[in-house]
Write a protein that binds this DNA or RNA. Structure first.
Length: 503
RNA sequence: UCCCCGAUAGCUCAAUCGGUAGAGCGAGCGGCUGUUAACCGCUAGGUCGUAGGUUCGAGCCCUACUCGGGGAGCCA
């Protein structure tokens, strides 16, 4: 083993001209006669290491040449800046220690399908895209804690085994708790309300479980949610809290993870616009928009755009197919084949959107006041805006029992959803809570819930009830939106989806 | 629970009208002094998801099932 100091790849800029040792794994390697290029991955970044035959023992040169992807090793050499190298620095290798050679690593540098990658989740972590998402997730979680800790909130850990139902009985996972049925938490809110009456401003942050039979790119059965709850607050104050909170998370990611965002292909200019105030719409205004000419026009324009895109892709596919049958070199054929595969799947997706467009337009046009907004309705509203949109004051009948009835319009409750822009959908749901004992009791009866189970919750309205409220933010959905990742399953280390747990 | 799409080499995908199973990557061997998913040559690698059916002949057509993807409802 070399006596040279060990450093991490992300520290190389401080060691130019010095001899150092890097410890990591072979990300990729290329051999070229008398020189080899080993891309080393060490958990902090990638570094191209050049191994020249003249600079290392012959036996070592041959061993490195046959190292498979993900072999672990330590490399010693001089650091130099080089524009041709990934990350801008390079290690001119003079010594190496092979820790464990690897053979036949399943995840190759070429394309793989979703199912394959999910079955290899334990290894997929090592790939660039998952690494970037993991780094951004870390920042999002850190920013969440920092924001609340810096704003006078006290962390209160709410139970995972619970007896109360927050939202809807059908979406609960039941567990056998020493012979009695209990379920996994779907929200910490009710417990948090009691804590808010002690600390004033509180939050809980942990995993939450929903047994919804949702097979979409926006759903997980186990996901992470942060929920603040504040005593002496009304709806405008809650909206301000939510927009400041989300803006802070985005700002922190922009500060800490710019290069990861670039690698991920995130929409950085869009993120830079995420500053208060966000757009505010009431449910009734949203319904007016959906049923009005603006939506008709928007959907027609969308359809025209999609059809234009489809035509362009088809022309391109025809061109490529023609080129492919001509007399060209093998590598050109390969390149064309790869582009064709991408184009065909994009085309299929566009065709699905074209097919869905009239259905979604019809759903919007025929929307009747009183229903909850559907997924496609939310998508339309959010795509009309470049910043997150609050939709407030939903019909009481479509919402949970604990939401406060608007005293100015008893048909609606004082709640809100925050829709992320560009069609990412709901990332926050929240409300002011019903603080009147009699009204709350009546709502519990209305929903067919057992008042005895909620005795302690009703108590909070008996002893010094105050206006209060809070919201829940889904970590994975927020990450998907910020990182521009189309599927939520990539945004949590080990996803649990409907009927599917890979590892 | 419902609707749409798919399953061919370890991986990603081709296979015209129903007529001999193909390519790249990966693996192995060899070549190349600067590569960027390197490149060039050679080698190995197949019960076409499963079970039936139609046919002289099925990867391709029909039926059922299994598994996967997307969407609806519901939601963070």
């Amino acid at each position: 083993m070399s006596s040279k100091p060990s450093v991490y790849v992300n520290e190389l800029k401080h060691h130019v001209g010095q001899e150092v040792t890097l410890h990591g794994w072979v990300y990729n390697s290329r051999a070229s006669g008398k020189i080899q290029f080993v891309i080393l991955r060490d958990g902090t970044g990638l570094c191209q290491c050049t191994v020249e035959r003249a600079n290392v023992p012959e036996e070592l040169f041959e061993r490195i040449k046959h190292l498979g992807q993900e072999s672990s090793l330590s490399l010693t050499g001089a650091v130099r800046a080089d524009e041709r190298s990934v990350g801008g620095y390079e290690l001119a290798v003079t010594g190496a220690r092979i820790v464990a050679p690897a053979e036949g690593y399943p995840i190759t540098p070429k394309a793989h399908g979703v199912d394959f990658l999910m079955r290899h989740r334990h290894l997929h972590f090592r790939s660039q895209r998952q690494w970037c998402l993991g780094k951004v997730r870390h920042t999002v979680v850190d920013a969440i804690r920092r924001f609340f800790n810096d704003h006078g909130f006290t962390l209160v850990d709410t139970p995972i085994f619970t007896t109360v139902v927050g939202e809807d009985q059908t979406s609960l996972f039941e567990v056998d708790y020493f012979g009695s049925p209990l379920h996994l938490t779907q929200t910490g809110q009710l417990y948090l309300e009691s804590a808010a009456m002690s600390f004033g401003r509180v939050y809980c942050f942990g995993p939450t479980f929903r047994a919804e039979k949702s097979k979409t790119r926006r759903h997980l059965t186990e996901f992470w949610m942060v929920e603040p709850e504040v005593a002496f607050i009304e709806l405008p104050g809650l909206l301000e809290l939510a927009e400041n909170f989300v803006s802070y998370i985005v700002r922190r990611v922009l500060e800490d993870n710019r290069s990861e965002l670039q690698t991920l292909g995130a929409d950085i200019p869009m993120l830079e616009q995420i500053k208060p105030p966000f757009h505010r719409l009431t449910y009734s205004e949203a319904v007016e928009i959906l049923k009005g000419p603006r939506t008709v026009e928007f959907m027609a324009q969308d359809l025209a755009d999609l059809q234009g895109e489809k035509a362009r892709m088809e022309t391109r596919i025809a061109e490529l197919e023609q080129q492919q049958s001509g007399q060209i070199k093998q590598w050109q054929k390969d390149k064309i084949a790869a582009e064709l595969i991408d184009l065909r799947s994009e085309l299929a997706e566009t065709e699905t959107k074209i097919e869905n467009n009239p259905k979604h337009a019809q759903l919007a046009a025929e929307f009747t006041w009183g229903k909850d907004l559907g997924g496609s309705d939310e998508t339309i509203i959010s795509r009309m805006h470049d910043k997150p949109v609050f939709v407030t004051h939903y019909p009481r009948e479509a919402k949970a029992f604990y939401m406060k009835t608007d005293r100015a319009d008893e048909r609606v409750v004082e709640n809100f959803d925050m829709l992320a822009p560009a069609g990412f959908g709901e990332i926050i749901g929240g409300s002011v809570r019903e603080d009147d004992y009699d009204r709350l009791l009546a709502r519990i009866h209305d929903q067919g819930l057992n008042p005895e189970t909620y005795g302690w919750y009703l108590d909070l309205r008996k002893y010094g009830s105050v206006p209060h409220g809070g919201f829940g933010l889904g970590v994975e959905r927020t990450l998907a939106w910020i990182a521009g990742e189309r599927h939520i399953r990539q945004c949590i280390p080990f996803p649990r989806m409907m009927d599917k747990v890979y590892i």
